[in-house]
Amino acid sequence: MTALLEVRDVRLSFGGLQALDGPSLDVADGEVVGLIGPNGAGKTSLFNCIGGLYRPQSGSIKVAGREVTGLPRHRIASLGVGRTFQNIGLLPSRTVLENVLAGGYHSTTGGWWATTLGLRRIGRSETELSARAIALLAELELSDVAGRMVGTLPFGTLKRIELARALLGEPRLLLVDEPANGLVHSEVLELGTTLRRLAAERGAAILLVEHHMGLVTSVCDRVAVLDFGRLIAQGDPHEVARDPQVVAAYLGSAA
């Protein structure tokens, strides 16, 4: 079986800075993979390459066997890649519910003519989407804020709203960037459990960037470690955490 996500020898540099130095990585259907590494290791850069925000100078990235480097960004989304952003990509002028509904764009239909003419299926699809969005908000404990404007809410809540939005698009591959940011310890583990369950119910694979090692080890099937744009280890979360190279990358080597 081919992997859902296949990253091969991706190289990306900004001027003289080598952000990604040829890492290769696979994510299978339904698998939850953690992507960890010190700040500046290239985790978010790799996310941005997969999502089409950056175009790597060389290497290949395939989603479900389809090359995505060079593909327009909106086409990548329709291949089933959903994501959340490290610094929040919500629409501040809209309510929480409307933000989540925006995640249903590529998984629903309704062109300009059909919408203008008010075809019945447009209304049905909207009703069905709203019901799913409201259910997702409940599962992520966001029902209380559903009608609030996004601009006024705390960071941890915004992270979960983004997650709900990404999940509403029924992604096959969900890229999650630091979901635990802004949460207290008890909330982090709870979020991990919910995330894992929601993804499993939908058969979505997750690639997770996270600094919170408790979340990574409890949620991920496998962990990949990036350092200076290179993949230095991957495997079982507990074993990787003991890998001397990984420890050195995080704490600085004794050399």
Binding site: G51, G52, L53, P72, R73, H74, A77, S78, G82, R83, F85, G89, L90, L91, P92, S93, R94, E98, L101, A102, G103, Y105, H106, R165, G169
Partner: peptide
Amino acid sequence: RSFVAVRDAELVAETLGV
């Protein structure tokens, strides 16, 4: 929603498939 996404955050809109 896609119009407002284009207005407020083009990159996000594209990520949503717009």
